[in-house]
């Protein structure tokens, strides 16, 4: 009986959702704000990647809030799981030859790749979040390969704090200079070159480091739950 009511409910839900969603014809959205942003983004920010212009300039406060949410989640997980700061007294098994070798080869590659993604965020797809995720993966790979080489909690904490502060301070500097928080400043440079788009690459660098440290923190506290 309960099974049938469940099925009935879900069928009804799908029909309702289908009725709501179907009139949204693909590719014909009105794009009121999008057109305006497309027309003015290059002029306003100097970033070749318009998504970056939206993420960091037009909707910069969303990004700050999102960063804060990640930080909140990491902090709350730290409280819930009670991160034990002891430096691995229990002898957990080593990862074995294959992973250890792979980590040695992959770690520098991943590091370079992450920095590339972060620093070219204003030119190509990618940016602080994606690069930060790769960065966290690189450091977590080291931990996997050699469990003695635990992610240093204190170091990530300092990086986390400094990177987050850097993001806000970059916004506050523009507040002090122009009276507007998170307005792009610095010289916009030549469109498409690495040193362009003013303060956006700096913001992305801070963002990437923050996200990387945050995710590494999160992974290490999930991995170090006392048995």
């Amino acid at each position: 009986m309960q099974r049938w009511t469940t099925i009935l409910f879900l069928t009804g839900l799908s029909i309702v959702l289908f009725a709501i969603i179907t009139p949204l014809v693909l590719g014909q959205s009105p794009m009121l704000v999008g057109k305006l942003i497309n027309a003015s983004a290059v002029n306003d920010t100097g970033a070749a990647n318009l998504v970056t212009a939206v993420v960091l300039a037009y909707r910069g406060l969303d990004t700050l809030g999102e960063l804060a949410i990640l930080f909140t989640a990491a902090t709350a997980i730290g409280i819930i799981l009670g991160t034990t700061d002891k430096t691995q007294t229990t002898s957990s098994p080593t990862a074995g030859f294959i992973v250890a070798t792979a980590a040695k080869v992959l770690f520098p590659l991943l590091l370079v790749f992450a920095l590339y993604i972060i620093l070219h965020g204003h030119l190509t797809p990618g940016g602080g979040f994606q690069g930060g995720a790769v960065l966290a993966a690189a450091f977590f790979l080291l931990t996997l390969a050699d469990s003695g080489n635990n992610i240093k909690h204190k170091v990530t904490q300092v990086i986390e704090a400094l990177a987050g502060t850097a993001f806000i301070v970059l916004g506050l500097v523009s507040f002090a200079l122009q009276g507007v928080f998170l307005q792009p400043w610095l010289d916009k440079g030549e469109l498409g070159s690495l040193f362009s788009a003013g303060s956006l690459p700096l913001l992305y660098l801070a963002l990437g480091l923050k996200v990387g440290a945050e995710l590494a923190n999160l992974l290490s506290s999930l991995a170090n739950v006392e048995k």
Partner: peptide, 11 residues
């Protein structure tokens, strides 16, 4: 295409 939804989805 519209870049705004892409940024929002990232968030």
């Amino acid at each position: 295409v519209d870049p705004v939804p892409q940024a929002m989805v990232l968030t």
